[in-house]
């Protein structure tokens, strides 16, 4: 692999993310990592369900009273859209259109950041109402599950930005194409986890 090799859309491989051995390894390894991440979130979900609405006697907060769907629904839409925009970015990556890829990644990052902002606002709001992390087993499980997802979003944003800045001047090659591909894969995974959180925590929480 030669990092200085310049590609044109014609010489660019069909699957740039797996064009090199390193790329192939990263591709398989990352899917395996996502398997481990799935088990991680499964454990968090199971714990959350076991501890839902559990607290010391006289606890005032339950899922049904606490959660406000409109805000969470907006967050869901934003994150789903960001997943779509990252797909556009990957479409341009495969066509070796670096500028468009960067642009769509930028939009993805902005959407992700606004999701994170709303989540921070949401948490701040709950804490302000008195539903703190150390409030009850329920609050601990809620913040840990949703917060772990939030931490993943934050990490994903950092990863996107680092790649975009680092490669801004040198464009696409088969060395960094797998990196862009993986972060977008990661972003989809985060999105899927959020769909589960929205369903299991918020929808099922409000419905009871």
């Amino acid at each position: 692999m030669d990092i200085n090799k310049k590609y044109t859309p014609q010489s660019w491989p069909d699957h740039p993310e797996t064009a090199t051995m390193e790329g192939k390894n990263k591709f398989v390894g990352f899917w395996l990592l996502l398997a481990a991440e799935s088990v991680t979130f499964a454990s968090l979900f199971a714990t959350y369900l076991a501890l839902k609405d559990k607290g010391p006697s006289g606890m005032e907060f339950t899922a049904a009273e606490l959660f406000e769907l409109p805000l969470v629904f907006a967050m869901t839409m934003i994150l789903l859209t960001s997943s779509l925009t990252s797909v556009y970015a990957m479409y341009h990556m495969k066509n070796h259109n670096f500028k468009s890829m960067q642009a769509w990644l930028m939009i993805t990052v902005l959407l992700g950041a606004s999701f994170l902002g709303l989540e921070i606002y949401e948490f701040y709001h709950y804490v302000h109402e008195g539903f703190g992390y150390t409030n009850s087993a329920f609050s601990s499980a809620f913040y840990t599950l949703v917060g772990t997802h939030g931490a993943h979003v934050l990490f994903g944003l950092g990863w996107f930005i680092a790649l975009m800045v680092r490669n801004a001047k040198r464009g696409l090659n088969t060395y960094n194409a797998p990196k862009f591909f993986l972060v977008s894969l990661y972003w989809h995974f985060i999105d899927v986890v959020w769909v589960f959180i929205f369903t299991v925590v918020y929808l099922m929480g409000v419905i009871g």
């Binding site: 501890l51 607290g55 010391p56 009850s136 601990s140 499980a141 840990t144």
Partner: peptide
Amino acid sequence: HFFDVAAG
């Protein structure tokens, strides 16, 4: 309070 029985 994951394992704290008094807090649920």
